[in-house]
Design a protein around this nucleic acid. Sequence first.
DNA 1: TATTTTAAAATGTTGTTACATTTAATGTAA
DNA 2: TTACATTAAATGTAACAACATTTTAAAATA
Lengths: 149, 149
Amino acid sequence: MGISEEIKQEKFKSQYSKAVVNVIYTSAWLHQQHIQLFKLYGLTTPQFNILRILRGQHPKPATVNLLIDRMLDKSSNASRIVDKLEQKKLVERRQCSKDRRAVDVIISDQGLELLREMDSKIEEWERANDKLTEKEAATLNSLLDKMRS
Amino acid sequence: MGISEEIKQEKFKSQYSKAVVNVIYTSAWLHQQHIQLFKLYGLTTPQFNILRILRGQHPKPATVNLLIDRMLDKSSNASRIVDKLEQKKLVERRQCSKDRRAVDVIISDQGLELLREMDSKIEEWERANDKLTEKEAATLNSLLDKMRS
DNA sequence: TATTTTAAAATGTTGTTACATTTAATGTAA
DNA sequence: TTACATTAAATGTAACAACATTTTAAAATA
């Protein structure tokens, strides 16, 4: 079942305008499944994403600005997401020594442990849902990159 | 510049896991541009999408249930989006004659006129942003369809 | 037909997002 | 060194989304 059937719109002006809808629809589809997965661990999608960025930095800290820079969705409020993660003791905030305006955020051991648990569930999900060959996925990646170029 | 550079993450477990991020990132990229476009006409993305579904139905009415069924993002609240559109006089609500629980929603002349104006701007945007050949876009569509299959 | 179940839409509530403003620290130039 | 601009992060606020509950009508069933 292709995108046309799923959203019940037969005709598109072009393959490109169809692709625009298709990317958005597929993203919403992926996002729905992520929400379900993350909810098992009490995280929202933005919280999970920030935790992963912090793990990528570990053991170096990240400032809030760096988090914003790396986030997929720049518009959401990094400062408040860090609040939530701090309440759950998954990250720590420290005054940055170099610039007292900035704040160093680091993932806690508990945060690292949570991500480790989640990793295996996510891998499991990806294995179960991957309908593309490695070659097809590579083609998809280069077409998406070209789309944004 | 590919997805790896843009989100500063070099290594992915597989092309598939990279594609998952790439679809979400590309969707956010598209969404940002849509927001800017729609804002010129005082609409949010969900409002625009519902208006377009209503135009697709015109001159037949759509019930709220039909709108939910066709929406890209099922989770958002169709009833309240219709409220907003009604306030702007872009749609009308009428009691459904066949089933008094249901409500017939129809796009107004003003709504049709607004969409006509927006059409040309959107086409313009698509022409300016379409970096893919028709064949590439078709491949992208079939890979996305396969991803969700 | 009376009672229960299901359905459509609206509404209440809570948390989140988007956007503007504020606060505090730093940089810069007269 | 004071004054002004800039930057980092936090906060205020209004709109929105997610999810549960309510209301009203229709359908099913005893």
